[in-house]
């Protein structure tokens, strides 16, 4: 049953997923080309100096792609469910409703993780060609909050879409934006803040249950 549900989710998500993967690939290609360009025109030591001593953000093209991926995947996955109340069909399936919603969201989560692992690995390889491991770690550390933004944005967008009442959706929107803004503004997060971001981000996945409950009860 779980795999059948995932099959349905995959049918909805696949093109958006491939689209976001392609977009990530383009951004990474751009970063790779840019790196080669900088090394050529600044000379390697000039470029290293800029990066190591001045913190030159040579990989910022990737910053908003995880966010966009999270939002786009949530939209393509959940807006068809809300269109004409199709979610009723889903919730009528002989599976416990909360479990069903969590299974749906787990699938988007897994796809995003897959995408983000690919982004991380590719950025790692690209940066590792030109720069030493310390810089690679610095880059991946900077990338990490952006990836968490992507996951959290996915969970919260899903909760916003599934919420049947417009007024409640509008309440959730500014808090979502505020929350995500905090991730973006966290520079050099301390380990405990990183752990908090991971946990709080993952916990937002449960908000879909509250929205789903409103849908289920027909609360207006």
């Amino acid at each position: 049953m779980y795999s059948a549900l995932l099959y349905k989710e995959w049918l909805k998500i696949r093109w958006a997923f491939f689209g976001m993967a392609l977009l990530s690939l383009l951004a990474l290609t751009y970063i790779a080309l840019n790196l080669a360009y900088y090394v050529e025109f600044m000379t390697a030591k000039g470029f290293w100096g800029n990066v190591i001593l001045l913190g030159f953000p040579f990989f910022s093209e990737i910053e908003y792609i995880p966010l966009l991926s999270g939002i786009v995947i949530a939209i393509v996955q959940f807006s068809p469910e809300m269109n004409l109340s199709r979610l009723k069909l889903t919730l009528h399936l002989p599976v416990e409703e909360n479990k069903l919603l969590m299974q749906m969201i787990s699938f988007g989560f897994m796809l995003l993780i897959l995408l983000f692992v690919l982004i991380t690995l590719m950025l790692w390889i690209i940066v590792g060609i030109y720069l030493p491991v310390e810089v690679v770690i610095f880059v991946l550390n900077s990338l990490f909050p952006w990836l968490m933004v992507g996951l959290t944005a996915y969970f919260l967008t899903a909760a916003i879409i599934i919420e049947p009442v417009w007024a409640r959706r509008l309440i959730l929107v500014p808090f979502t934006l505020g929350f995500l803004d905090l991730f973006f503004n966290a520079v050099n997060p301390h380990a405990q803040l990183t752990v908090f971001f991971i946990f709080s981000g993952l916990l937002t996945s449960t908000l879909i249950l509250f929205s789903g409950y409103h849908f289920k009860r027909g609360i207006k």
């Binding site: 909360n98 505020g178 929350f179 709080s200 509250f210």
Partner: peptide
Amino acid sequence: MLVKFSRIIYLLLIVFVSSIFI
């Protein structure tokens, strides 16, 4: 139970975000 938990997370999200932004 789960929905109750979900609501608590929602409340905490609002508390957290507003204690920074307000």
